[in-house]
Every structure is written in C-alpha cells, then in structure tokens.
Design a protein around this nucleic acid. Structure first.
Lengths: 102, 102
DNA sequence: ACAATCAGTCAGAAAAACATGACTACCGAA
DNA sequence: TTCGGTAGTCATGTTTTTCTGACTGATTGT
C-alpha cells in the first residue's frame, strides 16, 4: 500500500482510495468482526480459519493507519491489546450495509 | 479472480465479493467513466493513461461477469462494441457516493 | 522454574495481479 | 492492396500480495 502516485489517483477517483482500505484478503471479515466488539489478535486469528499471523497483523496495521481501527493496551487482569472500530470505522458501516443490500 | 472457496466467503461476508468486483487497479475508474456513458475499448484505453490492453480487457470481462456492465455489438457505421452500466451497475452508484462522502 | 499464552516480527517461498510486446481478425478508406 | 482503426488474445516477465515457519519477548499459570 501507498505507492508513489497515490494522491493523483485519489483526486481523480476518491472512491479508489477508500476501496483500497477495505480490500485485501482479510479486511472485510475483520471489519465485520470488529462490528461485534473489540478484537484481540490471537482470538481473531482463530475466528478466521485459513488466515495467517502475518496477513492479519498487516491488515490490522493498515486498517489502523487508515483510521478505521484503534489499538488500545488494556492494563488489566490479563494485560492485552484491543483493536476496535474508530468513529471513522463506525461511519463506514453504511457502505457495508449498502453493499450487502444487493 | 474466482478462486475455489468463493461461495463460502460470499456466504460468510457478502460485502467481500462485492468489494472484489470493484477493486482491482482500473475498475473504479472504469466504473466512473461508465457512469458518463457507454464505453468503447480503445477510447477507454486512451482515457486511462498508463493502462494497458490486457488489464483493461480483463477488468471489463470481470465486470461483465459480475453483472455490472453489459457488452453490446453496435451494428452501425463503424461497427463497434459498447460496454455500458447494467441495472445492477446503476444500483452500485449509491455505494460510490457513500464512499465519496467521507 | 517451566510451560503456555499473547502479540507480534522476519526471511523466504508461493501465488495472484499487472504490464509488455507480438500477434489475430475484421472493417473501411485511399 | 496496403494502411489505419476497431477489439481483442497470447506468452512471457515483472511486481505485489499472501502464506509458511521460525523466532522474539513480555506476561501469566502451575
């Protein structure tokens, strides 16, 4: 992601950049699961049969960079990390519903 | 496109298949141009600087298979082919507007 | 102390997407 | 009949994406 001529494309066709943020093998499914609540890395991996650490890690990072997810360290009993939908992420749910209503 | 485990994914996450239909290097731009009227292969190629025959041909074929575009042979003066937005394609415009309103 | 779980990273291989240039076949004009 | 335009296909090569398996390092349970 993020090659040279990114802004040019985005200006020509704004939808393109947004589509990129959601396309990628595991992103749509991660997004769906994020709708149901905060995600934890290993649990997520188990919920995505056939997925591998690397790809999920990259998907999470890119979705965070795109401002769809936010990462929080939860300083509690088993000290873990949560990936949850950001406000911007919530705003994207409309797109998903539109896509599914076809 | 269209690997083995396609229907399984589509059932789990309907948005995924739809996103695939619109993602790919030239598809969003082709879609946009199709909104403005029927497309002809060589003209389209000229409107997409940097694109190549092969990729555009594949994009058009896949978008037709996905039911977004329809191909028509126009038996007229210079006998040519038109690729135009299908009804289903028209229905997708909403998704694009949603994506752009972000 | 030892093992397991959590959340990753890294190098390298395999697979998918994309680009290049050559080629086909058909139509119409010069 | 040779040239240019239409709409592609094909084999090949490059680039990008995804997968695999090994490894790290902190934390927690026994």
């Amino acid at each position: 992601m993020t090659t040279e001529s990114e802004k040019l494309i985005a200006e020509q066709c704004p939808a393109e950049g947004l589509l990129r943020q959601l396309s990628g093998k595991w992103k749509p499914q991660i997004f769906r699961l994020a709708l149901e609540g905060p995600l934890r890395f290993n649990a997520l991996l188990r919920q995505l049969p056939g997925a591998n650490k690397q790809s999920v890690a990259v998907a999470l990072k890119e979705m965070e960079e795109a401002g769809l997810l936010t990462k929080t360290v939860v300083r509690e009993k088993p000290l873990h990390i949560e990936h949850s939908l950001s406000e911007r992420g919530q705003a994207m749910t409309g797109v998903f519903r539109t896509l599914e209503g076809l």
